Simulated scan of single mutants.
Amino acid sequence: MTIELEQLDPETCDSCGLCCEGIGSPVLIYQTHRNHIGPHPFRPEGLPQPLINEIDETFGGLYRGQEPQERCLWFDPERRRCRHYEWRPQICRDYELGGTACLIRREEERANRQ
């Protein structure tokens, strides 16, 4: 079965999620480090405790690059979107929908499916 990916409306990333696959988990930067004192340097203020617990339990002291690389922890592969989009890290916020990296990734996926 061949699935063609349409150009996304610049208003949404819904049903794509290609940028969330094969990159590890950027949310690892929100992990609790036992030697850190004071406010977390990367974690957004108000990040719900259940999300912090999920990250800490999943990564258990790993550093960025040591986590499984298949997809981000928060990526929902069925809905093809971030489960906690409003809490995504800055690197995810900086990834421009319809930008060069986005379009290259979409074209690579299209070519792989042919």
Results as ranks from 00 to 15, higher is better:
residue 4 E to A: 12
residue 5 L to T: 04
residue 5 L to P: 02
residue 6 E to A: 14
residue 6 E to K: 14
residue 9 D to I: 03
residue 9 D to G: 02
residue 11 E to I: 07
residue 13 C to S: 14
residue 19 C to M: 04
residue 21 E to I: 13
residue 22 G to S: 06
residue 23 I to L: 01
residue 26 P to D: 07
residue 27 V to S: 10
residue 28 L to D: 00
residue 29 I to E: 11
residue 29 I to G: 00
residue 31 Q to D: 01
residue 33 H to T: 03
residue 34 R to P: 04
residue 35 N to E: 11
residue 36 H to E: 11
residue 37 I to E: 13
residue 38 G to D: 06
residue 39 P to S: 10
residue 41 P to M: 07
residue 42 F to I: 00
residue 47 L to G: 05
residue 49 Q to S: 10
residue 50 P to L: 08
residue 50 P to M: 09
residue 51 L to P: 04
residue 55 I to C: 02
residue 56 D to L: 02
residue 60 G to Y: 01
residue 60 G to P: 00
residue 62 L to R: 03
residue 64 R to C: 05
residue 67 E to F: 01
residue 67 E to G: 00
residue 68 P to H: 06
residue 74 W to P: 00
residue 74 W to L: 15
residue 80 R to Q: 13
residue 81 R to G: 13
residue 82 C to N: 10
residue 84 H to K: 11
residue 85 Y to R: 09
residue 88 R to L: 06
residue 89 P to I: 07
residue 89 P to G: 07
residue 89 P to V: 11
residue 89 P to F: 06
residue 91 I to C: 15
residue 93 R to M: 09
residue 95 Y to A: 09
residue 95 Y to I: 10
residue 99 G to P: 13
residue 102 C to G: 06
residue 104 I to Y: 13
residue 106 R to T: 05
residue 106 R to L: 14
residue 107 E to S: 14
residue 107 E to R: 15
residue 108 E to Q: 15
residue 111 A to N: 12
residue 111 A to C: 05
